[in-house]
Nucleic acid binder design. Structure first.
Lengths: 340, 340
DNA sequence: TTGTATGCGTTATCAC
DNA sequence: GTGATAACGCATACAA
């Protein structure tokens, strides 16, 4: 089963390779109907399939982009990916997906390999810990867009949630219905993880803006497996929070486990709000109040921005940080609380 | 910022291109330390990055596989993808992910384009409706593995759930604890969707094997948006089922919505079991009894099988249909029911 | 141990 | 309108 090439088609149709190439690229202008037919027939008979690799080599463009994510298992990632795929589909581009487990070494390797494979652009959910590599791409003005996280001091386009607004939305909603002692649950705060930092920061600002107290012990920042224990301690203390704000879906899961194990009633014993509109929010009992990230919009915007850069590579626009609007989904896990 | 090529490196290091090529491919055997150093230095100074496309053209291998799925948003898909990615990572392969929305036209186009891009193999969650294209790949003995679904009468390796066993597991568990009137909920049965068909078939067999009655009106097969309505009708009828078996996560969601809207109590009013171990199974109230698919194993097995075919392309083994074991996760949504 | 020549399958530039 | 011919960047057989 050796491959049929353009040369074979040319021979079969009694024309030259160049003519076949013209035909394939629809440069019909100066081509006789006769030859067109003969070529079409030869292609058909031989079952010729163009070799895109050769074409890519010549044209210096692969119609392929790379997407490097830190965890493909996150809902957000999947949805963003889906949106990116849709945009690519419209343009006959393909997507190479790579998973880093938030490991900078893997990220570095992927960046290197994908660039070696000559992808036309890269969308990255960055670990945030490969500054030189990001910078290198910027310097070469290689098409690059960050998603979900951004890297400070680096002029790279990024599409992410407006985390401050999301936190404010949560706090304001809780405060509006009468909650005063509000806790927040998050994985550890690390400098390179911007969303976490921003959400906690936004939380503090919003609490203060409401004239409420920011209680340090209400800020639970622990590795995922330790969260339940941390919450247990907090709730055994004298004055536990009346409401918890879970910073993302994974922490929400831990909070729910905690609630279940301790037979707490939502929202009576503890009100709950979280970022990420988990799929079971509307079927949980009670239904869960969440703050949805516009995941598809994030993916679409990121992809569109990337294609802008791919298509007119020259015009060096200012890097643009898109902060998309969170959406409050009011459900039952937060409800009116009369003041004591 | 024009590209640095091997020729540039060769010139800078004062050697020929071939020597550089040797160096890059670690064919050090007959190379003097001196030249090695010079080449290494030249590469470093020029910031040379190999062009993998050119290499691929020459070697007829791209170190890239394609994965065509029908819905990347399904948990199962994501998990399988993740496992595939892990296997590929070990081998320095990359994965191009394509999403078909279960549309055969899109699938066809993707198969064509990915083959044009010279991927070394393909893992497909098939729509089941591109028989000729699948067959073409088989005839050319192009490395191909199906996942989740299989296509009857086509000698293609496939990795899927043992759907019969899964259905039997569900029915037996329900029967063991005393349920007799068992219903099943599924999207429409169509010939090309093997898992659905097998699960319903397996359900019927298992019910009969238990000496129970297969009631046609207990087999709810409707488009997802119609399921709630169908269930409503069923439960208004004289003799509704005591337990429901949801065939996958999407139908489960509909069943849960139905349950919630009608304020039914699980498992008192209706017991529930479903295939797909949804992430909220253990935090739902009550916790949900499910039958887990070994998603990671599926992905890993599929990828390993594909690499076997890629590596020793010749040996034409009999196609192998791997049916993986479902795992019953007993939780609270099914519990002892005393016979009336 | 290193260099030369050739080819991988296309596309692009010119002649004809 | 169509056909030579030369790239594209790398790998490899063979020569030196």
């Amino acid at each position: 089963m050796q491959k049929i090439t353009m040369a074979d088609v040319a021979k079969a149709a009694n024309v030259s390779k160049s003519t076949v190439s013209q035909y394939l690229n629809k440069r019909y202008e100066y081509m006789s109907e006769e030859t067109k037919k003969r070529i079409a027939q030869a292609i058909e008979e031989l079952g010729y399939q163009p070799n895109f690799v050769a074409r890519s080599l010549k044209q210096k463009s692969t119609s392929t982009i790379g997407v490097i994510v830190f965890n493909i298992l996150h809902m957000l990632t999947t949805q963003v990916l889906r949106a990116i795929e849709d945009v690519c589909q419209e343009r006959d581009f393909h997507v190479i997906v790579c998973n880093t487990d938030d490991d900078p070494e893997k990220e570095k390797k992927y960046i290197e390999m994908l660039r070696a494979k000559q992808v036309d652009g890269l969308i990255i959910f960055p670990t945030g810990r490969n500054y030189e590599w990001y910078e290198k791409m910027v310097n070469e003005s290689f098409p690059l867009v960050f998603v979900d996280r951004m890297v400070p001091d680096l002029p790279v386009d990024a599409v992410l949630l407006d985390n401050y607004k999301a936190a404010k939305l949560a706090v304001d909603h809780l405060a509006d219905v009468g909650y005063e002692r509000i806790g927040i649950v998050t994985p550890p705060l690390v400098s390179y993880n911007i969303p976490r930092t921003e959400r906690v920061e936004g939380f503090k600002l919003a609490v203060k803006a409401r004239g409420l107290q920011v209680m340090d012990e209400y800020i639970v920042n622990l590795e995922i497996p330790c969260i339940k224990e941390g919450l247990t301690k907090l709730f055994r203390s004298g004055c536990p929070p009346q409401a918890l704000f879970a910073i993302n879906d994974l922490t929400l899961m831990e909070v729910l486990h905690f609630v279940q194990e301790n037979q707490l009633r939502i929202p009576h014993d503890i009100a709950l709000i979280s970022i990420d509109d988990v799929p079971f929010a509307s079927i949980y009992t009670p239904t869960l109040t969440t703050i949805a990230q516009p995941a598809f919009e994030m993916g679409r915007k990121a992809a569109e921005r990337l294609f802008q850069k791919i298509e007119r590579n020259n015009e060096e626009k200012e890097p643009q940080i898109l902060r998309l609007e969170p959406v409050l989904k009011k459900r039952q896990s937060v409800s009116w609380r009369s003041n004591p």
